[in-house]
Design a protein around this nucleic acid. Sequence first.
DNA 1: CGATTTAATGTAACTGTTTACATCAATATG
DNA 2: CATATTGATGTAAACAGTTACATTAAATCG
Lengths: 367, 367
Amino acid sequence: MATIRDVAKRAGVSVATVSRVINDNGKVSDKTSRRVKRSIAALGFEPDFLARTWRTRVTHTIAAVVADNTSPHHGIALREASAVALEHNYTLILCTTYFDSQIEKQYLRMLRERRVDGVLLNTVGQSENEIRALTKSGIPVVLLNRPLANQGRLVDAVVVDSYRGARDLVEHLIRVGHRRIAMAYDQALNEFHKRERLRGYKDALRASNLPYNPELIRATRLSHDSGIECAQNQLVFSPRPTALFAAGYGTGLATLAMLRAQGLRIPTDICFAMFDDVTWGDFIDPPLTTVRNPAQELGRQAMELVFARLADRKRPAQEIRLAPSLVVRRSCGAPKIDETLRAQSEQTQIALTMDPSDAVIAAWQGL
Amino acid sequence: MATIRDVAKRAGVSVATVSRVINDNGKVSDKTSRRVKRSIAALGFEPDFLARTWRTRVTHTIAAVVADNTSPHHGIALREASAVALEHNYTLILCTTYFDSQIEKQYLRMLRERRVDGVLLNTVGQSENEIRALTKSGIPVVLLNRPLANQGRLVDAVVVDSYRGARDLVEHLIRVGHRRIAMAYDQALNEFHKRERLRGYKDALRASNLPYNPELIRATRLSHDSGIECAQNQLVFSPRPTALFAAGYGTGLATLAMLRAQGLRIPTDICFAMFDDVTWGDFIDPPLTTVRNPAQELGRQAMELVFARLADRKRPAQEIRLAPSLVVRRSCGAPKIDETLRAQSEQTQIALTMDPSDAVIAAWQGL
DNA sequence: CGATTTAATGTAACTGTTTACATCAATATG
DNA sequence: CATATTGATGTAAACAGTTACATTAAATCG
């Protein structure tokens, strides 16, 4: 492999000049620049990325540490993050923690050793020390969907506004005529989002002067053995609510299965809506009303935040709050429906509100 | 930051000795080893990963280039690959190409420059040169779900046996009583898998002495604008088949929507089954009969293949063929059903055949 | 017991860039 | 015209490890 010295010798210049040409910094006359470039081409010289990295201490690498890359939400965020990275000629390291804080810590330590240039972190908690170590080493950390750790104002964050999402959804249900609305959330749902979604639910009720009934709030737990049965027992209400709102993906799935098991039809017997838009929500019968997380936006903004901080390390920590959007489909047909809403709903149904960009559709086309 | 020289000086030994202690190779007496370790601890010395990488030319990094990380299939494969990487103290770079061969090439060039230690590649094609360049640079390439390029026997591969999957599924449909079985595949489905699935379909028919009717094979195309309508038109049959087999994820979704649009009930009016198991297949109504790809296995084997080749570069190229498994659920209730099958199906339904490990279930629990 | 092997450690070259600083010529400035 | 400034280029010192080879002491062998 040709080195910068070979290039320099052949071009009859110094290595410094070659380096300047390669990096396009410093002053180099047109004439020598051309000569150097010819020399590079002739020798088929390629700068050694590793040597460069070592010398400059920039790895051109960002890591994303997520609890699970297979969830639709983070899958899309990662896809976008990788695209943004590519735009900047950066590379994205994928670290899946499986919701295991030990693995998370292990990854964070590893990433610090490797001196990645930044970390996107969807923490499961307990990594305060590792996060501090990272920032202390000058590695920017951006939290994904977790609020800023109150302890330090050192890290940026981008979060989805769970409160807004829950409130919008419940307000929609109320507007459409529901009065008795149940909410199910997963026991293991992140504390912050649990609180926020519950707050959204309550505020929506209050705004319409509806009573808040704790009886209608249920925690579900999807476990391997007990499976659906568990959720099923936990989700028996009497009298039956007219609408059921699942505050998360897992709960949504469990709830769907539970309703099927109870022989309840959607939306005839009960209306159903869930947090976390799913690509297939449009395709099944009935199409699901969901709160769509701006996953793509989240991935992009998080990445941009890293680059912004790399460009200016003094900037104050920032928390970007993204608004989810309500996707109205058939699963929430209203008990009483007014004409404007009907039209709107009808239209949505026809437009089929395909979540995704062409890219995602293309995605389906592969194996 | 303390360097190896500082450690050496403090311990009163040479840098070589320190290096030997760190890497636990070469001969070092217990006494000096202890002294060195004390010195390391005292100084808080951490070997510089970058310097090491540069010197040894091993990056401890594998890249996975996939068409789309959000598909359930590759999402799971990636999750597993990242876990295997972690076991080996390796890191996984995620490269999503969006089915764009230009981006794929760009990534492959980038990865070669970065001298990753290996590449998992779910190619969309046209990257022969880049693949060759990689292997020529001594970087092992393992193809994901693509057959070995006939041109060179340089790369390993791990593929899902599409033929087997299709054949098993169609044979199941036949056994259960279906005689008129339609198959839909996506126009953009990878050529190899298209051929294999079709072959499986035909062979299954032939084995039962059923006629092959080209009229029952349809290509669908999910496009953004035309959306479902398109699929809808393309999927009108007369007389109607009793079962419809979607040979892919995208087609599966399109088909589901189409059946709904045509007002057909599953499985009462028509039976439905699809390739590519989906995590939610269990939860919706009716639960879907699917061909489950061993995605996890695929990710693991591919990764192991890389490590195997790193350990022995002379080993002959290998193609690992993984068998998919049939997951029988409700969407294929049989027109005529015999008792054993009924029992089997019932049991499956009760066991709820949760695709995933606890990890995936946990996944659902996060935002 | 001298010769040979083995174990433990040290010396210094090597990896390929970047960049601070030096040099020198050409140009601008007072 | 002498001097300061600027532009173009060169020199050589980092950067922080690994490892081939050399050296020395200790152990083993005939």
